[in-house]
Simulated assay, not measured.
Amino acid sequence: MKIRKAVFPVAGFGTRMLPATKAIPKEMITLVDKPLIQYAVEEAVEAGIEEIIFITGRFKRAIEDHFDKSIELEIALKESKKEKEYEILSKISEMCDFITVRQKEQKGLGHAIYCARDVLGKDPFVVILPDDIISYKESVTGQLIKKFEEFGSPVLAITEVPAEETYKYGIVDIEKKMDERTFKLKGMVEKPKSNPPSNYAIIGRYVLTYDVLKAIEECDTNQGEIQLTDAIRKVTKDQSSYGYLYDGLRFDCGNKIGYLDATIHFALNRDDLKDDFTKILKKYC
């Protein structure tokens, strides 16, 4: 079955990026010349996603507006003969279909995804956390979808992290290695305080099934939140789930250092910027 839908949970406050996020959604902070969320949307579209479901909260209207048409601006660009700018702008709203669902209370990632249940139906779907910006040759979402097509079971993007940092992530418990990049899972632990089952962390890309949605409904709250990892762990007890060591370079743009790292990387990989930007960096090195 072709995977057509992706869920983007974007209702959070973005407290790690204050004060910038006091009035601007963290997903709309600019990375070089595009908002963070556009990088993730483009990755999803490259993977064949046709419908993106934003799970939003209050003060997130800017995200909807960015992916909507801006008739007045497009007319102004045409009249000013700014054809390149017009082409870039007009493509944004045409990439795919965008749907917005409001998460009225912030009750965890699992709850945010469950808010999309009526739109998702019983089809498999992708979840993308747009804080995680990934530089890739092949869309990481596309890599996961290929693995899902092979196994027909949930597939999570994983990356190796230092043992001393495992407490920051959901950490997978590996049953066996299937190939160089693929692992069959027997469970996972959310932010283990000690004795992590491995040093492979789950990052913000998932291919999930309707069974995960049903499991979310059955999950208990943990400190007022419903955790996605709890639901996936429930499903893993009855059927197979897989971790995939994706090919790409990930930046955590939900914090300042990760965002600055990403800015340097993406600027230096732009032919129109790299020479001048290199000269600027040399002034400070």
Rank of each mutant, 00 (worst) to 15 (best):
Y206H: 11
D238E: 07
E164Q: 12
I203T: 00
K122E: 12
E218S: 06
G243L: 07
T15N: 04
A11G: 12
L245A: 11
I55Q: 10
A231H: 01
G108M: 05
T15Q: 13
L36I: 10
D179Y: 06
P130T: 03
F59I: 10
I29D: 11
D68F: 15
F67R: 08
K84Q: 13
V126A: 12
V32A: 13
A40L: 02
R102M: 15
E164S: 14
K168N: 14
F183W: 05
S153V: 03
N255E: 15
P162G: 03
A6W: 04
E64A: 14
F98Y: 15
A112K: 00
H111G: 14
L120C: 04
I202N: 01
F148A: 14
T278F: 10
I3D: 05
I202Y: 00
I134Y: 05
T21Q: 11
P9C: 01
E180L: 08
V212N: 06
K60Y: 10
F266K: 11
I71F: 15
K34G: 02
E175P: 04
V101Y: 02
I63D: 10
R102Y: 06
D173S: 13
F266M: 11
K177G: 09
Y136K: 14
S135T: 05
I203S: 01
K82M: 11
T229Q: 10
I134L: 06
E72A: 10
D230R: 06
A262E: 01
A6I: 05
Y169N: 13
E94Y: 03
K107T: 00
I71S: 13
L260K: 03
L144P: 02
F54S: 01
K26W: 00
K26E: 07
E83A: 06
T221E: 15
G170L: 02
H111E: 12
E190T: 01
T182W: 08
V126M: 07
I37W: 00
Y169T: 04
M1E: 12
R117M: 00
K91T: 13
A20G: 02
F67N: 09
V119C: 15
L249H: 12
P162V: 09
L129T: 02
A20Y: 08
R61Q: 14
R270S: 10
K22C: 02
